[in-house]
Design a protein around this nucleic acid. Structure first.
Length: 273
DNA sequence: AGAGTCACCCGGACGC
DNA sequence: TGCGTCCGGGTGACTC
């Protein structure tokens, strides 16, 4: 589960640790994550500082002090750890890329279908142009949300997870948002009233903000001091709760395939509109 | 053109 | 412990 809230959690925790710290070394074990030869890639990072970290959709963009960007896409199940060297747990052994900040090491592992690309600002912007709007951006509001959704047809869930439509939501939070809005994941967007679209908008903000506030659903803490990651797990109301009672109506949560995606929902209190 | 479906990718978890 | 098998989300190709 690596969606907007998990990436926001990484951004927050990592920012506290690595902003304005100098990269003192790089070790690459999995070349295919990179967009250049490991030696060239490493050399470009060496000696740089991270000015700030930005999140776009499910990507993290590390802004470096030479104007370049490190675009990190953790793919399906990637994880980040940031520890003092020597204090690593067993997962250090299967790190794919390590970036050293003095005596600390940032380790990437478990990345599937992801990458760590070093790009110019222009290249990074181009790669991100296809992303849909950020729902938590200051520029997003109810009116814009309405306009966006009024143009869209098809199933609610399919739309929510489509990155070119809205950025950052994946299979997990789509189900939680649909539950919060009391809409079936299979609900047709073209059938929703203005009031329902507004409810959907509020639900989206509620779920994403609550998840961010509580550290998302991450499986592994960033380091031993991290008390935040994974805190949203106890808030989850449908995902992986099949067979358990719905906390709103008591009916049992169902698991099904919708739009060829694993989907959890309450068939009793979530409706078509 | 846009929506729905499906195959592929592959690290890790799990089982023996 | 080591090997084989399976899981599963995002993506892009393909269909309708």
């Amino acid at each position: 589960m690596l969606e907007l809230p998990e990436l926001e959690t990484y951004k927050k925790l990592l920012s506290e640790q690595i902003i304005n710290k100098r990269i003192t070394g790089v070790a690459v074990k999995e070349e295919k994550l990179l967009n250049s030869e490991p030696s060239a890639w490493s050399k470009e990072l060496q000696g740089r500082e991270v000015l700030y970290i930005e999140r776009r959709g499910k990507q993290l963009l590390f802004h470096l002090d030479n104007g370049k960007r490190l675009l990190l896409n953790l793919g399906l199940a990637g994880q980040i750890q940031y520890d003092e060297q020597g204090s690593e747990d067993g997962s250090a052994a299967n790190a794919q890329v390590m970036i050293y900040f003095g005596e600390h090491a940032l380790r990437l592992h478990g990345i599937r279908q992801g990458y760590a690309h070093l790009l110019s600002a222009k290249e990074a912007d181009q790669l991100l142009t296809d992303l849909g709007p950020e729902l938590l951006d200051r520029k997003m509001n109810l009116e814009r949300f309405r306009v966006l959704f009024a143009r869209k047809r098809g199933m609610l869930k399919s739309a929510l997870v489509q990155q070119t439509f809205v950025a950052g939501i994946g299979n997990g939070y789509a189900d939680e948002i649909a539950f919060e809005a009391a809409l079936l994941p299979s609900a047709k967007l073209q059938d929703l009233s203005e009031e329902t679209v507004e409810r959907l908008y509020r639900s989206t903000l509620t779920v994403l903000n609550d998840a961010i506030e509580n550290g998302g659903l991450g499986e592994q803490p960033l380091n031993a001091q991290d008390q935040l990651t994974g805190g949203y797990k106890s808030h989850v109301r449908v995902i992986e709760r099949d067979g358990q009672p719905c906390e709103r109506c008591g009916a049992l949560i169902q698991k099904a395939e919708i739009g060829s995606r694993r989907t959890y929902y309450c068939a009793n209190c979530q409706k078509e509109q």
